[in-house]
Every structure is written in structure tokens, then in C-alpha cells.
Design a protein around this nucleic acid. Structure first.
Lengths: 233, 233
DNA sequence: TTCGTGATTAAGTGCACACATATTTGCAAG
DNA sequence: CTTGCAAATATGTGTGCACTTAATCACGAA
């Protein structure tokens, strides 16, 4: 394609990956520095830098100033996980999305939620329980707590029409958040809502999001059995 | 720090994020093009490009040539998930790691494994079952199948000393892979190995890795109850 | 020997410029 | 009204250069 010696950063990355794969550069070993590689591969240092940065982001090499670049000894592979709005997730599978509100009330959160949201003991929160359905079948149970002080508009929101999941994404400016995945046994209520046996193993994701240092909301999503979260490395 | 008007790409990114957060740029809206932003912020287009690329990688904006850059309508947040070797994962928590081999044999894989590895019907595979322990407590049960044709060295490996998990990372040149997370109920054997009640909800990760188009190995990791996979957005 | 301390070096970053490439847009022919 | 093609344009990428920053190394003083 390029008759001359210029190489794209993707080409450089491919060459770097090949050398790692073929053990030309062994794990833990120092690799030639950028300028050297640039000379060798016939491209500019900028391009080599771009390529090496990309490889480093995948966790296959480690780079430190002055210390140089070395092949990772224990490649902590970095997987990318997409966290879409549930409606989109369902629609992407070609299924019809629907949502049904189960309950909505302002109440005192349990200690676990209080801890996650770092809220004072007697602070009431907006508690919304709803069910996401795919083609009419229970898909995920959303158990959400929203701090009405941090998100005052939430009091007016109509969660019969739109899930808090989506409402928050649309309404509340993004901030940081943290996510945890685990497994729990379905309780009786959860089993009924999700139309599964009590005690069934459910995949759970818990998210807490904040803006600045202000905690906004925390949610537990219980997925119906056989749900799989999938990604590629 | 910089008295002059030059801004680092991080500063530009911060400004871009601020404008999105403060709804100066609304979801779905087209944002000024790179050259314009460069002029406005007093830096080069290269720098703006670097910043916008970074923001796009987090899924907050979408960029297409000629079409321009727009704020994502449904921000599919991209979380990064670190997949370390289990030993490292345990040691990072300050616990003592140990490993115990349960069984190792060459046998015909069940259909599910055959499907994942795309292997012919009568092809025997290396089947290794082992337990990872943290401070002596069961941590994860590793149920792995290795294609001995693709990884011939595996036949000679001593999996009493090193887990296949770690052995493969050290020995086999990396390739691609795919990962799935789900939840299952503990069977009797699994319950005994993991020292938990039968029927307990277990967090599972399944990985299949390949090199080129050659399937190498597939593994199911059953984590002891209360395991949580954690990340930050 | 140990502890600064400064020189050295490799990566990190910024900039001006040029060209590549993908899309859109608009105009014109059918 | 549709189709095709060319122009315009925003992002994508490469290059050469310069400067910054962090880590290491070597040297000399305590």
C-alpha cells in the first residue's frame, strides 16, 4: 500500500505485537527505545510513540520515563466493558423493550445503601423499584436509590413512563461511578418478579455514581437467570 | 504553570468534559470542529485531537470524519476491567496465595466445551481441575480444557506446581480471547471444593482464548460466594 | 559505606504543517 | 425524482522539531 517506507501507527503496533507474540521480545525484557524503533522501522518517533501507547493501554507492555519500555511480566489484560442503558442493550438484541414500575417511595434506606451513598442516618431517599422486560419476559430487576437533595428533579420524574436507569442518563450530567459484579440467590420477591425459582443464582451488577464528591444514586440490577455479560479481549 | 495560552491535552479534555457535564454541549449536539476549538482554546489542533480522541474512547462523544463530533445521545459508558492472573489478584489483596491440583487427564470434552473450542467430535483434550486458595480458603475453582494440538507443551507441564492459569500466561504467546460473566448455582462437587452450601450462587467467568484462528483453551472459573468483581468508571 | 546531587537519558507532550480518507452536500444529467 | 459525480470539509494520521519531566546513574562529599 505504502510503497515508501512510511508505516502507519497500526502497522507499528502490529509489528510490536508480533515481536511480543513470537517472543522476540521476552516478558520482562526491555525493548528498544522509541527513537531506535523509529529508525529501525523507518517512521517518526511520534508514530512509534502512538503505537507503543496503544499497546501499553492493553496492558502488554509497561512504560516508564527514563526506565524505558518493557514487556509486561504478568500481562494484566485490560478488557473493555460496555455499559449501555438497558433499553438499548435489549433492543440491540433485537428484542422488544418494555418497562414496568413496581414501586416508588421516599423512605429511609437500609444501612448498606446508606453506606454506599455516604448519607446521614435520618436522610430519606427516593426508592424506585422497576422491572425491565425483553419481549415481555423479565430481564432485570432494578432496585434504585436516589438522593433527592443531589437530584431534586427526580421527585417530579414520572418513572412509570421511563426507567430511572434511562431517566438518569438523560437528565443527570455524568460524573464518576463504580461498578461491582457478583452473584446472589434469588429471594422470594425477586424470584416472583423475575419469574424464576427462589434460590436461583442471579447475576448482579451494583453501581454507585457521583458528581464531584456528591453521591447521586446507587442501583442494584438483578438479572434473570442465564444472563451473561460478554466482552472480548 | 503555563503563563502563556498553551494548554495540555488533559486540560482540553477537562474543559470538554466540563462543557458536556454542564450541558453547554447538549446530548446529540454537534460540537465545534477541531480547528475551531484549537483557536478558541489557544492550542494546536493536534492537542485538541488528542483530547477529543480520549473523550471518545470513554464513549462520551462520537466522532466521524466529515460528519464531525457530537455528544453521545446514549452514552455507552466504557469501563475498563483488569484481568490479572489469579495469584496476582490474591496477592494484591494482601493474602497468601496457594494452589492445589485436583485432577488432570486427557479426555473427551463435553459438547459445550467442544462448541467453544470448535474441536472435532473425537478429539481428546487436556482437562485440568484446580483450586486457587487465598490464605488457605477456597477462592476460585478453575476448570480448564486445553487443546494439546494447539499447545503441545501443555502435556509436559507440571500443574501441581503452577496453575494452568499462570502457566498459560507465561508460556503461551498471547492472542485474542473472549470473556463472559454470569452466575450459577453450586453443584455438589463444586460446593465441596469451594466449601460452601450446594445451590449457593457463584460468580462465574468463562474465557476462551485463541491465537490467530486456532482455539487454544477455555476455562471456567467458579468463585467462592461473596466474590465481587470491581471496577470504576 | 552511604547519602546527596547533578548529569544523562527515555518517555511525555506540544506545535506547525501536510496529506489521507471518509462523508456530506450540492449540482447536474438521466 | 433519482442517480452519479465532484467539491467541500472534518477528522485521521504522519513528520520533524523542541522542550518537559521523571528516573536512573555516576560521582563526590560526609
Amino acid at each position: 500500500m505504502n510503497a515508501d517506507s512510511t508505516k502507519s501507527w497500526q502497522a507499528v503496533r502490529a509489528e510490536v505485537l508480533r515481536r511480543i507474540r513470537d517472543r522476540e521480545w521476552k516478558p520482562g525484557e526491555l525493548v528498544p527505545h522509541e527513537a531506535e524503533l523509529a529508525r529501525e522501522l523507518g517512521c517518526s518517533r511520534t508514530t512509534v510513540n502512538r503505537a507503543l501507547r496503544a499497546v501499553a493501554e492493553d496492558g502488554l507492555i509497561e512504560r516508564r520515563r527514563r526506565a524505558g519500555t518493557r514487556v509486561a511480566l504478568h500481562p494484566v489484560r485490560k478488557a473493555r466493558l460496555d455499559i449501555p442503558v438497558i433499553r438499548v442493550e435489549i433492543e440491540n438484541r433485537g428484542l422488544a423493550y418494555s418497562y414496568s414500575l413496581i414501586s416508588q417511595a421516599e423512605e429511609l434506606p437500609p444501612p448498606a445503601v446508606r453506606a454506599r451513598l455516604q448519607s446521614p442516618p435520618d436522610h430519606k431517599m427516593l426508592h424506585v423499584l422497576g422491572l425491565h422486560l425483553a419481549d415481555g419476559c423479565p430481564y432485570a430487576l432494578e432496585d434504585r436509590w436516589i438522593d433527592p437533595d443531589a437530584v431534586p428533579e427526580a421527585r417530579e420524574a414520572d418513572f412509570t413512563q421511563i426507567s430511572p436507569n434511562e431517566w438518569l442518563v438523560l437528565t443527570v450530567p455524568f460524573g464518576g461511578g463504580d461498578i461491582a459484579f457478583s452473584a446472589v440467590e434469588a429471594g422470594p420477591d425477586e424470584a416472583e418478579a423475575l419469574d424464576c425459582a427462589p434460590g436461583a443464582a442471579l447475576f448482579v451488577t451494583e453501581r454507585t455514581t457521583w458528581r464531584g464528591s456528591r453521591m447521586l444514586t446507587t442501583v442494584q440490577l438483578l438479572f434473570a437467570p442465564r444472563y451473561r455479560l460478554h466482552t472480548r479481549i
